[in-house]
Computed example of a mutant assay.
Amino acid sequence: MGKKAFVSIALTSLLVFPVSYQQVYANESNSEAFKNLVEQREEKSLKKDAVDSTAIEKLEETLKTKRFSKANASRSSTSNDYLVEKEFNDDFDYANTLSYSKPTIGQLLPLFDVDFYKIKVPQDGALLVGGATSSESIYLMFAAVEKDWKKSGKLEYLGSEFDVNTEVQVYQAKAGTYYVPVIDEDMTWDYYYDDNTPEDLYSIVTAFVDNVKPGKPTINKVDNNDVKVTGKAEANSTVTVKRGTTVLKSVKATSAGTFSAAIAVQKAGTKLAVTAKDSAGNISSAATATVIDVIAPIKPTINKVDSNDLKVTGKAEAGSTVTVKAGSTTLGSAVADTKGVYSVKIKAQKKGTTLTVTAKDKAGNVSSKATYVVVKH
């Protein structure tokens, strides 16, 4: 954090830790931790939409308002308000466990002391780490890292936000366990300067925010006979089916991730959009489906046809393709107009010839056959 970002906590009294210089490996063996932490930590402004600002504000408020009692601390390593650092904790394998519900209070004594903490991220989301100190003697530096300083890409630093007395770092993290090493930054300067006393304290607090939107739902085939939309979405998410801006139905997906939303029958060609919203309010991108036409056109009507006629006329579904046959021989086809009127050119047919007429819509559904026997002119 450095001198320009000194942070402090208002303390009602001093905290005493059962830590001696002999209990801490405070020597040059921690120089690698200092080096790695300095390299790991970079100053980066946090984008406004990286995480809900309310979560950051809550963490900042926790760091500002917590008060600590010397009496409570001396009796127990925990209190109702906070946890206390436990030595040895100067390596990954000896890291203390951080809590999402309470901050942890620690010291950085003696010279070269480094404290390690670990935190479990329950699922993919944002890990927030906040820090503050009680004294100008500590220039607090901390960061979330993978074990043994590995960089597998599971943890992405999104940036920090500084308030008057606090710093909150935000990371995009995959589910897993991560570590928070803490040092006094003045130990990384060209000269070693240790003015810390047992009364100089720091606080580390963490939070998790589910900021990962559910995956896009899948939608099973929907036709113009269906009275429900089915498919798969994130387990227990709220699935909403829309037509344009109109909400047709919202239902909760099962624990197995399936959903079934009852809707009114929709016209063929209608576009439906389906989204899933998780319990944190994250909304998936929309999956879309077009209602399929599975309803065959009505049976066409046929006007009188005699042995001199060179066309067959009548009515069928508007826009459908009308086909006239004599037995298995196709005599002609034409598209019915917007009013459903058709006129199919044919060769003159003998009296008694049986004609069959069908209409096929754009979806390929074919009507039942209409028949007519050619009469004598």
Rank of each mutant, 00 (worst) to 15 (best):
T254D: 12
R243T: 09
K249Y: 06
G281W: 13
K271D: 15
F259H: 04
Q266P: 14
N282T: 14
F259E: 02
G231Y: 01
R243V: 06
V239Y: 04
D226L: 00
V265C: 06
A235N: 07
K271I: 11
A276E: 09
A273L: 02
T245Y: 06
K252P: 03
K228F: 00
A262F: 00
R243G: 12
V265T: 14
E234I: 00
T246R: 08
V239I: 15
G231I: 02
K232C: 02
K277I: 04
L248E: 12
D278Y: 13
K242H: 01
T246F: 00
A273R: 09
G231C: 01
Q266W: 07
D226I: 00
G244Y: 05
T270W: 04
G244F: 06
A233I: 05
S260T: 10
V265W: 00
N236W: 02
K277V: 07
V239P: 12
G244L: 05
A276M: 03
V251R: 08
V239E: 03
K267M: 09
V239L: 04
V229R: 07
T238C: 00
V227C: 00
T238P: 07
G281I: 11
T245L: 09
R243P: 03
S279F: 07
K267R: 11
V274L: 12
A264Y: 00
V239Q: 10
S260M: 03
K228R: 11
F259L: 03
T238L: 02
V265R: 07
K252E: 01
A262W: 00
D278L: 10
T258V: 11
T238Q: 14
A261K: 07
A253V: 10
T245R: 10
A256G: 11
E234R: 01
G231K: 04
V241S: 09
V229E: 04
T245M: 05
S237N: 13
A235M: 03
S260G: 08
A273Y: 08
A235E: 11
A276I: 03
V239N: 10
I263F: 02
